[in-house]
Amino acid sequence: MPGSSRPLYQMKAEFFKTLGHPVRIRVLELLSQREHAVSEMLADIDVEAANLSQQLAVLRRAGLITSRREGLSVTYELTSPQVAQLLTAARAILTGVVAGQAEVLEQPA
């Protein structure tokens, strides 16, 4: 099976690289709420259609989202609710980090 010879930590690093783009994160956040048509995502994310299409392709190749055509529009959804859980965990971690930084800044010099 391809990929099975690579160490898990290397596969995880590649997975996080896939997530390492603001547009991709925003797409996943939107799809965590519900499925979206491309036109809906374009209205919410301030990027050119070609850029959004490119980022959607990256996420699709990584197996994080799926698409289906409905007439002239294409609708996307997450392949797993665990993607939404990962984004929620990241938010919790960042909230803690930011709170910790605020505490440091509030201490007298």
Rank of each mutant, 00 (worst) to 15 (best):
P2E: 13
G3A: 07
S5I: 15
R6P: 12
L8K: 14
L8Q: 15
Q10V: 15
M11V: 15
M11L: 15
A13H: 13
F16S: 09
K17C: 13
T18L: 12
T18G: 09
L19H: 00
G20I: 04
P22W: 13
V23G: 02
V23H: 05
R26A: 14
V27M: 15
L30A: 02
S32K: 03
E35Y: 06
E35R: 03
H36G: 01
L42V: 00
A43T: 11
D44M: 12
V47Y: 06
V47N: 06
A49V: 05
N51Q: 12
S53H: 05
Q54A: 08
L56M: 07
V58I: 14
V58G: 03
A62N: 01
A62L: 13
A62P: 00
G63L: 08
L64V: 02
S67M: 10
S67Y: 10
G71K: 01
L72A: 12
S73Q: 06
S73Y: 02
T79F: 07
S80V: 04
S80M: 03
P81V: 05
Q82S: 12
Q82V: 10
A84P: 00
Q85C: 06
L87G: 00
A92P: 05
I93D: 08
I93Q: 08
L94Q: 13
L94I: 11
G96L: 10
A99Q: 11
A99I: 06
Q101D: 02
A102M: 15
V104S: 11
V104A: 14
L105N: 06
P108S: 11
A109H: 13
